[in-house]
């Protein structure tokens, strides 16, 4: 398998990366066989930068994040190859204790379903305070004060009164704010947000994304935003990595990819979403189904669904071709895709 560095270390991104994932492979050993969930993913995130990882269910976008956080269910999931360099140190070779120190303090995660990610029998104040007691050894009183301060920061109204309430007493949007507060508690350098607003209503989604973007700027954190929503990506991302069947098929700065996608999958996705500003004609539909990870097609995994597929696509897996100093595409026909 060939994989080149995703974000070419070109002129556009000079500083050293905060996170550097190199040729990551993850597989799930199930009863029915080995599901190859991640097959050679590489990406980098720099401080104060937002990388959006876009993909459908089964594309491997969440599994990659779990591997980075070290919260992969193992077994059945195993990292079989690759490096995850965080501030230059490989997380995969660290021992459990070192890794635990990095997690939470240096990198944190925000989940889609805030209700199940919060402990239902502990007040939100105690859950926030626990972070300071465990990681920073603060006293109960000081940590509670810090918890209130955090709740204020994520703009939960009447934080002082609500600090003793339980997760179910908050609305969906407020719970997601609490999740953000927990992620921010130890001022991490990297936040991974896995579909943070998918479960929320449109108007609340806007509030939460705005808050997240603002806090990211304030703390100059790196942010990995995992989503399937092309709209959310366009709103906040600096860079995009599009994933399909466990591989990155295209990476690009956000402005270029929406105008001129360099991979037929990205192109198909963009053509298939209905528009808000006009009624539009019949939607383009990508034919077929995402592949079964137990039996990924040989060659380019997208070839059975791709209208541009040629004989070579069924035999040779495309490497990530450099499209420009800042863009790459895993399509043999990226030039045709870009021009057509």
């Amino acid at each position: 398998m060939t994989t080149t560095e995703v974000s070419a270390e070109g002129t556009a991104r000079p500083s050293a990366p905060l996170l550097d994932v190199r040729d990551l492979h993850v597989e799930f050993r199930t009863r029915d066989g080995v599901a190859r969930a991640v097959n050679g993913v590489s990406y980098t995130v720099k401080a104060a930068e937002t990388l959006a990882v876009l993909g459908e269910s089964g594309s491997g976008k969440s599994v990659t994040a779990q591997a980075i956080m070290g919260i992969l269910d193992s077994p059945p999931g195993f990292v079989t190859k690759g490096e995850i360099l965080f501030q230059g140190r490989d997380l995969l070779t660290m021992n459990a204790e070192e890794r635990r120190k990095v997690r939470g303090a240096k990198m944190a995660m925000i989940f889609q379903d805030a209700l199940s990610a919060l402990n239902p029998v502990m007040s939100v104040g105690d859950q926030l305070a626990e972070m300071f007691i465990v990681h920073e050894g603060l006293s109960r009183k000081d940590s509670k004060a810090k918890a209130i301060e955090l709740m204020d920061r994520v703009r939960i109204p009447a934080a002082r009164e609500r600090v003793g309430q339980y997760p179910h007493q908050f609305s969906g949007g407020m719970r997601q704010r609490i999740m953000i507060a927990m992620a921010l508690a130890l001022e991490p350098e990297l936040i991974i947000a896995d579909e943070p607003t998918t479960a929320l209503d449109v108007t609340v989604q806007a509030q939460v994304m705005e808050l997240l973007a603002e806090l990211q700027r304030e703390y100059s954190m790196g942010l990995i935003l995992i989503t399937h929503d092309l709209g959310v990506v366009a709103d906040v991302a600096d860079y995009i990595a599009v994933m399909y069947a466990g591989r990155i098929v295209e990476t690009s700065p956000v402005h270029d990819i929406y105008r001129r996608p360099a991979h037929p999958y990205t192109k198909g996705l963009l053509a298939s979403i209905p528009r808000l500003d006009q009624k539009g004609q019949e939607l383009y539909a990508i034919k077929g189904l995402p592949p079964n990870l137990l039996h990924i097609p040989p060659g380019c995994a997208f070839n059975p669904r791709c209208p541009m597929a040629q004989a070579v696509c069924r035999t040779d897996e495309p490497p990530l071709y450099d499209v420009s100093p800042t863009r790459a595409s895993a399509c043999h026909f990226w030039k045709e895709c870009l021009d057509g």
């Binding site: 034919k287 079964n292 039996h295 059975p304």
Partner: peptide, 20 residues
């Protein structure tokens, strides 16, 4: 129709296991 046929093929392409 063409869609059906594609789905049918991708179904048949999966021996054992998985959704289909």
């Amino acid at each position: 129709i063409n869609l059906a046929q594609d789905e049918a093929r991708s179904l048949e392409r999966r021996p054992g296991g998985g959704q289909a």
